[in-house]
């Protein structure tokens, strides 16, 4: 079949990668982007987008407890999911967050990193496009394979699933800060199989789901997280780990 010049032009346009298509260039140096694009985003259309604010310290002082914070407020009303991962981690995925309408598009959590790595937060908007926020963190490393701090404490099992928390009034939100006692074993420390919280839901007083959060063992021991809500209505946090233990907290 012979193509005329218009068809060729169209083909050439499609052949261009999505990110060079008027979008931003990758702001971090990454050797793994194509892999994660295919594996976590199913190769779907994406743009590198600075409006997805992903914050982390420039370096990891404690590679076992690295604070990251995602803010996708620029896409209010359009977001379906937010995924986060650390590209050079043995266990890269951090969370898969599905925020409902009463929850702001912000999430803070602490993670483990094994070495200096690019970090990503990918926001899926209703039009099917992934908006990818990026940052880079330096590290001496070893956070994923360091011996458990929780397990070193005698009687830690008795505290499993205890939740410390509090609500705070922010200028534009009601913030829930939570810390859940759990070793979050990632299977990389000798002789200890995977044992980690993998599901969380934030519900209102009537049990309606306000946000869903899938967690992965890149999340630190005793996970510490912040969720920002639009109102001050009562909430319940429901958690489950991969051994089927369920925990609840009310705030």
């Amino acid at each position: 079949m012979a193509l005329d010049w218009r068809s060729w032009l169209l083909l050439a346009l499609f052949a261009l990668p999505w990110d060079s298509w008027g979008g931003e260039a990758d702001p971090v140096t990454s050797v793994m982007w194509d892999y994660y694009h295919a594996r976590l985003l199913d190769g779907a259309p994406f743009v590198f987008d600075q409006r997805v604010k992903l914050q982390a310290p420039p370096f990891a002082e404690d590679a076992r407890q690295v604070p990251i914070q995602v803010d996708a407020s620029a896409f209010a009303g359009q977001v379906e999911r937010i995924l986060a991962w650390a590209e050079l981690n043995p266990i890269p995925q951090i969370f898969d967050f599905a925020p409902g309408e009463r929850v702001l598009l912000r999430l803070a959590i602490r993670i483990r990193i094994e070495q200096a790595t690019p970090l990503r937060a990918a926001v899926l908007t209703r039009d099917g496009l992934w908006h990818v926020g990026s940052t880079q963190i330096d590290a001496a490393g070893g956070g994923c394979t360091a011996p458990s701090v929780v397990r070193a404490q005698a009687g830690w099992e008795e505290h499993l699933g205890e939740v410390l928390g509090r609500r705070f009034v922010l200028a534009d939100a009601s913030r829930l800060r939570l810390q859940i006692a759990h070793p979050m074993d990632n299977g990389l420390v000798g002789g200890i199989p995977e044992f980690y919280l993998n599901q969380a839901e934030l519900r209102d007083a009537s049990g309606k789901i306000l946000a869903r959060l899938e967690l992965f063992p890149a999340v630190s021991e005793n996970p510490t997280l912040s969720l920002d809500l639009k109102d001050e209505g009562e909430t319940e946090l429901w958690l489950r780990d991969n051994n089927g233990n369920e925990f609840k907290a009310a705030l």
Partner: peptide, 22 residues
């Protein structure tokens, strides 16, 4: 400051939180 927040802030924040599990 970045280092000190990593070292010390967990103590300060824990002191402000309370048990909320049920």
């Amino acid at each position: 400051l970045i280092r000190s927040v990593s070292h010390l802030y967990p103590r300060y924040e824990r002191a402000r939180l309370r048990r909320v599990d049920r």
